[in-house]
Amino acid sequence: MEITLKINGEDKTFVQSFVPFVMKRKALELEKYTTQKNADPIKYFDMQAAYVVELFGNQFTKEEFENGLDATKAQDVLYEIVGVGVIGYPSKEEQEKRLGEILANQKEAQETKQK
């Protein structure tokens, strides 16, 4: 997995080829935190930043992560790294493909029913 951050005006790409299994547990703990009734979004932001820094073996700092990740792409980047790369969720493309198949099957079933 990889992440690109803007550091000192330059895009720098960091690669992590090995993810210790304990990082999956930590990712699930992060996810669990978000389901709590009074989960603080600012605390969650800090937890995510610290997690990603640790996940990439401290190749960059928390400050570099916070200042170097494009906020308009952050949700997708974090989902791809943590959700897909660590937890094992399907990618956005896989989800869209599955949804398309479900909708096509529903449409076919309705058309068959109407005949």
Rank of each mutant, 00 (worst) to 15 (best):
I81A: 01
V82P: 02
R25C: 11
V22H: 06
S91Y: 06
I7P: 02
V22W: 01
T34V: 05
I87T: 01
K73S: 13
Q36K: 14
G9R: 05
A104D: 11
E63W: 06
V15H: 15
F56R: 04
R98C: 04
K97P: 04
L28E: 04
I87H: 00
E80G: 11
V22S: 14
T13N: 07
G9W: 03
E10A: 14
G83W: 00
A71Y: 07
L5W: 00
K97D: 09
E94M: 08
K32A: 14
G85I: 00
S91N: 10
A27T: 01
F21M: 15
A39H: 07
T112M: 08
M23D: 01
E54S: 06
T34F: 03
K32H: 13
A74E: 08
G68R: 00
Y89C: 07
G9C: 07
T112N: 10
I81L: 01
Q59Y: 00
V84K: 00
K73D: 09
G68E: 00
L103G: 02
A27Q: 01
K37H: 06
E2Q: 15
D46S: 12
F60K: 05
E94N: 07
T112A: 13
T61I: 10
E64Q: 15
N58D: 14
D40S: 06
A104Q: 13
V15G: 10
I3T: 00
R98F: 09
Y44D: 02
M1C: 08
S91C: 10
A71M: 12
D11V: 05
V19M: 03
E96W: 03
V86M: 03
F18I: 06
D76N: 13
R98V: 10
Y89W: 08
M1H: 05
P90M: 04
F56G: 01
G9H: 04
G57L: 05
S17Y: 14
F65G: 00
F60D: 02
T112H: 06
A74R: 12
K73T: 14
K107R: 11
E101S: 08
E29Q: 15
T35K: 14
T34C: 08
G68Y: 03
K37T: 07
T4D: 05
Q106D: 08
G68M: 04
Q36V: 07
E29Y: 13
L28Q: 07
G57V: 06
L30N: 00
E108N: 11
I42M: 14
K73Q: 15
N8E: 15
E2G: 10
L55T: 02
K37Q: 07
T112F: 09
Y44H: 10
G88N: 06
F45Q: 08
N8K: 15
L55F: 03
M23C: 10
Q59A: 03
F45A: 09
G85V: 03
K26G: 05
F14E: 03
K92A: 08
K6E: 14
E63N: 10
F60Q: 03
L78H: 02
S17L: 14
A71P: 08
M47C: 10
V84C: 04
K37S: 09
E93V: 11
A27Y: 01
N38Q: 14
T34D: 03
